[in-house]
Design a binder for these strands. Structure first.
Lengths: 260, 260
DNA sequence: AGAAGTAGGACGTGGGACGTCCTATGACTT
DNA sequence: AAGTCATAGGACGTCCCACGTCCTACTTCT
């Protein structure tokens, strides 16, 4: 009987020929969330309810929900229910990691892309934070730098927190989440490629320069410090076993322009 | 028999208690793509093959593939087969649009975030392009600006192409795709909110300034020009009916805007 | 009243069937 | 012989049903 709905004679209209039903279902579910103004964490209608509302079978609903789950738009808890998700950046990790791992297009250049984009965002972000930030921020950043000096696994965590603190200070959620995402994916891809180890002391020093620039509220100096920090990361990456990543085009041919 | 695989007594090892089988399947399929080095466009194994390789039912395989499809990692063509996807940024449109439409967190601030991140990336991108670009780029950009001057739907297309040209010139695929994504999503969200129309002449002028800066190969001037361009966009957005995006937004019943 | 056990709801997985779409191969026509 | 059309096969799309697992909430026993 459910199949009867999509035969032409019952509807009488032009054949819909819907190329992808599931895409339509996905859209409908999203619209449902928007229309009912369901906040993140709110319980979604039951699969059975959606079945009836949308008029398709449970499998179709489940596949659509699965696609939504992959995007972080919904969260599924076994035996409990489906809930509206926050669409956080974690959902993109699979996507970006795949994109980075697959070397079909520009070889290892994708890893460089990751770094470049992060550098662009953080440079501008730090520039803005330099001219407008809470005084407490400095102490928090210094604490991170101190932790970086101590060798160990916590140094990497402190590194991430350092950048996250700055990004959060700017107040742009999207930018903050993206940089965090790039950081995580870079780290994962780097580990997979057998990247080099980080030098703790040098890293801490580079970060300290950024803090100093923030203290003096000098936007240009802050941007410059961030650039130098990324130069360091690039140098370290180049020393790895996948050396010379992204040699497709020597953009940094101009030594003077590299510091800008 | 398939069910027997996951009972503890057959495996004899510690109970896996797999919280989500489909997540495991998704991972396995991705690894399969990487291991076999399947390039984008290559045909994926049949669902039946995957069933046997991974050892789960077709429904489970299909749900995993559906999740992968949502991320653009695979493409499905009905009646033909499943193919490796390019993981392009189009896949993130649903995610980002949802994230922008849902105003649970910071109201309309998300739209502002979109603009800010794009500004950050394009600013730095343009700065780099200023110091290193092909001479032909200028002519291509000027052609876009000329098209912007003519009113009509093509003006928006030219606008997009203009920014895309610059981003492409820098050579960072990821940055280019992200800015394109932000552009598309902003446009979609703007339309949904009943955004204001763009003033053709003014827009063309702002873009011309960017071209001029590129001609003189002045990085700082180019960055400045991009900033001004985005100031313009922000100003225009602020004039919309959802005026003052970023603030709590006062519902200013502007009679002039009611025409659209 | 408190704690253990039980009933119900909801998602997870498996298996099968049929429809739809695309491709390719064969027969037929010109 | 070459081109066109019809048919067979493969692969995905949708549907249905059944059972397992997990969590919640209620009932019942102590």
């Amino acid at each position: 009987m459910a199949t009867c709905q999509r035969t032409k004679e019952t509807s009488g209209e032009t054949v819909l020929a819907r190329p992808q039903r599931s895409e339509e279902i996905t859209k409908r579910i999203i619209d449902l969330i928007i229309d009912r103004d369901l906040p993140p964490g709110a319980p979604m209608p039951t699969e059975l309810s959606l079945m009836e509302d949308i008029g398709v079978s449970r499998n179709s609903i489940r596949e659509a929900i699965k696609a939504l789950q992959a995007l972080g738009i919904v969260e599924i808890r076994h035996g409990y229910g489906t809930f509206v998700g926050s669409a956080g950046s974690e959902a993109l990790q699979t996507w970006l990691l795949f994109r980075t791992r697959t070397r079909g297009a520009s070889d290892a250049g994708r890893l460089r892309d990751l770094l470049e984009v992060r550098e662009m965002i953080e440079t501008e972000l730090t520039r803005r934070v330099a001219s407008d930030h809470r005084p407490e921020l400095i102490a928090e950043l210094e604490a991170c730098v101190a932790r970086m000096r101590r060798k160990g696994p916590d140094a990497a965590v402190a590194d991430r927190e350092f950048h996250d603190l700055i990004c959060a200070e700017a107040g742009f959620d999207l930018a903050r989440e993206l940089t965090g995402l790039f950081w995580d994916v870079y780290r994962a891809a780097e580990g997979e490629l057998g990247g080099p180890v980080s030098s703790a002391a040098s890293t801490a020093k580079r970060h300290q320069v950024i803090v100093d620039a923030l203290v003096s509220r000098d936007g240009d100096a802050a941007a410059e410090a961030v650039h130098r920090h990324f130069d360091e990361v690039r140098k370290r990456a180049k020393a790895g076993r996948y050396g010379g990543f992204g040699e497709a085009r020597p953009v940094d041919a101009d030594p003077a322009a590299a510091t800008s």
